[in-house]
Design a protein around this nucleic acid. Structure first.
Length: 657
DNA sequence: AGGCGCACTTTTTTT
DNA sequence: AAGTGCGCCT
């Protein structure tokens, strides 16, 4: 395929955006209006007009969309696009840091994920009741949000945990202790990865020039989900690099991470000489699907000014199914997919969208029972699962002997060693230089079984062969791990470990391996199934952003879940929930199937029933002409015939008192 | 004192 | 699936 073919596929506004001269631009693109296509074509256009592919950096939100964009450009241009790079903000920044670690002041630092960050907060917080101080997790959340929004602790604490505001001095102290400890132990957390780069390019002209001289164009996807910290990365580069930002404020669903659609709304004032273009024609879905989506947004007190209309015209009516519980819901979805498959559809034309990875718990067994092949995007990540972390802790302490969190985990695995004993041992090991000394000390520890030192020694011998190190460590630790997880799917966990060994095969650096899979996380169902296999996709809505599918099941759109009872009382949070549902609905190309449960036992408990406010359920006041409704099982009915103009439609609501 | 096992809750969303 | 609290053991 050629660039001409690609340009020929564009409509007038897309063409205008793609072929724009080198300048700053903001493309406001509604759902399904060809955002990805526009970015792909823009990159291809720039390259075929003489820009070297290596001088274009694409910033996307997930690794999945990043690699899809690059793949598509390469499909059109071939070798010419070889040097094109697409990354997430985090992987882009880490690659800059790794290219000049001393410049950024963190040579040889280990990246820690949210879990480790929480562990470190736990250490510096000490044992205090959770009524006296926020939990380690909460502290972690406030700390991270303040940094991503580039705002003070004062402001953030007031917004997030107002009850603890009087304790702000103590909390500030803990946060400073966290930063101190982090520095001593040579850790960088996720926010540091962005902040280190942002501070340096804002603070040093030399470093800014070094970065900006590498690029002519930055193409930013999902711009509505960038936060102030990320803007702090883009802003200083705009004098030398052209920004091409694509986004949709109706799809902003990362507020919990500090996303700020001021980045969209203020673009034209912040960036001088910039052009704003709109893409409004939806190519993805049928009109019936867009009618539901448009209606949902129209119910918002915010004015999104969105009214998508379908180029494809009319199609099938969306359906709304009510079940009495999540198991029936899951079973029916599995049956429905199976039936469609038997009628000639492909597995890959089905996507199941869930709000939380936890919500997949009923779906997965239902698909497994019917032998439907699937992958779960956004589920528990391989490197986040307990057994893998256990094993990796042995590698981490060898790679970075200062890694206190990994030491705690590793030492605590062994019989007879708990928090206190582990801390005492760590106190001694942290000051030691050299493998031999560390090994000797471990061997001398009375409370520590011999296997612990053996595991560490095995890793030391294989330290430049990550897969070998994993195998050697596993050999020594297997018995202990099997005992620990004997009642918890040990066989499955064992398979995960083999999988990680396989992933590590090409890696010669422990830290490099861990870093890559922390920043580009995958879960086991993604590793097992090959990329292009014909399989069903289960995805969290957040992970499904930017994707589409012929038939979409949006699961558990029940009262208490949409909006989540968590967000009640916070209007901004409720609006974000609405956008989450909007994103889910607009993924569907041909068929939209919304399911819900009438007995949502964990979301609406008996003692809360009286307080639940039915008017905050997004599907209340649902006009009867938008969906075909089906009741299943013994789901209780509330018949409501006040529906306007509504012939014989039964409006199904859930009686919440 | 420190560690262990059992019963219990409690789940947003992600780099 | 993992964190918390509690009682019991070494």
């Amino acid at each position: 395929m050629s660039i001409e073919n690609l340009l020929g596929e564009l409509n007038k506004s897309q063409y205008q955006a793609v072929c724009m001269p080198a300048q700053h631009a903001l493309i406001l693109a509604g759902a399904g209006t060809g955002k990805t296509k526009t970015i792909v074509a823009r990159a291809a256009f720039l390259i075929s007009n003489g820009t070297h592919a290596g001088r274009i950096q694409i910033l996307a939100f997930t690794r999945r969309s990043a690699s899809e964009i690059v793949e598509r450009v390469r499909m059109h241009l071939g070798d010419e696009a070889q040097a094109l790079r697409a990354s997430t903000f985090h992987s882009w920044c880490i690659s800059l840091i790794r290219r000049a670690p001393k410049v950024f002041g963190c040579p040889g630092y280990s990246v820690i994920d949210r879990d480790d960050q929480g562990q470190l907060f736990k250490l510096v917080r000490g044992k205090v009741k959770k009524t006296d101080l926020p939990t380690a997790g909460e502290l972690c959340g406030v700390y991270s949000l303040a940094r991503n929004k580039t705002q003070s602790l004062d402001t953030t604490l007031k917004q997030e945990l107002p009850d603890f505001y009087p304790k702000i001095d103590k909390i500030a102290e803990i946060m400073m202790a966290y930063e101190q400890r982090k520095k001593e132990r040579h850790y960088i957390d996720y926010d540091d990865i962005l902040d280190v780069v942002a501070q340096n390019i804002n603070g040093s002209e030399k470093i800014r020039n070094w970065v900006s001289s590498q690029y002519d164009h930055l193409l930013v996807d999902e711009f509505q989900d960038t936060n102030p910290l990320q803007w702090k990365l883009l802003d200083p580069l705009k004098d030398d690099v052209n920004l091409f930002c694509v986004g949709d404020d109706a799809q902003s669903i990362y507020g919990f991470r500090g996303a700020d659609f001021q980045n969209v709304h203020s673009f034209s004032t912040r960036v001088k000489d910039s052009t704003t273009l709109k893409l409004q024609e939806n190519y993805r879905s049928t009109q019936e699907i867009l009618d539901v989506s448009n209606w949902l947004l129209s119910q918002s007190p915010l004015n999104y000014g969105k009214n998508l209309s379908a180029i494809r015209g009319s199609g099938k009516m969306p359906t709304l199914h009510t079940f009495s519980n999540e198991w029936e819901e899951a079973r029916w979805i599995a049956d429905d997919i199976l039936q469609r498959k038997n009628d000639g559809a492909k597995w890959q034309h089905h996507m199941i969208l869930v709000r939380s990875s936890f919500a997949g718990r009923a779906i997965e067994p239902a698909l497994l029972a019917k032998e439907i092949p699937y992958r779960f995007i956004g589920g528990t990540k391989l490197l986040e699962s307990a057994h893998i972390r256990d094993l990796l802790s042995a590698l981490r302490v060898v790679a970075n002997p200062q890694d206190e969190i990994a030491w705690m985990r590793f030492l605590g695995l062994w019989q007879g060693v708990g928090e206190k004993t582990a801390s005492k041992i760590i106190e001694k090991t942290l000051n030691l230089q050299g493998d031999d000394k560390v090994l000797n000390l471990l061997k001398q520890e009375k409370k520590l079984p011999d296997s612990a030192a053996e595991a560490i020694e095995a890793v030391m011998i294989n330290r430049h062969n990550v897969s070998g190190a994993l195998q050697a460590a596993f050999e020594v630790m297997q018995k202990m791990l099997a005992e620990k997880y004997r009642a918890q799917d040990w066989d499955k966990r064992k398979r995960d470990i083999k999988l990680v060994e396989k992933l590590a095969e090409k890696h010669t650096s422990i830290l490099g391996f861990i870093e890559e899979y922390l920043l580009n996380p995958i879960n086991s169902s993604q590793v097992v199934k090959k990329e292009n296999d014909d399989i069903v996709t289960i995805s969290t809505i957040h992970s499904a952003k930017g994707t589409e599918c012929e038939t979409c099941y949006v699961v558990n759109v029940s009262p208490g879940s949409y909006p989540s009872s968590h967000s009640l009382g916070d209007e901004a949070a409720v609006e974000e929930e609405r956008r989450v549902l909007y994103v889910a609905l607009t993924r569907a190309k041909d068929e939209l199937i919304v399911t819900r449960q009438s007995r949502n036992t964990w979301a609406v408990r008996d003692d809360q029933k009286e307080e639940a406010e039915p008017e905050t359920y997004f599907l209340n006041d649902l006009p009867p002409n938008l969906f075909d409704e089906v009741m299943h099982g013994d789901a209780p009915l509330v018949i409501d015939r006040k529906a306007p103009g509504g012939g014989s439609v039964i409006h199904v609501g859930i009686d919440l008192g």
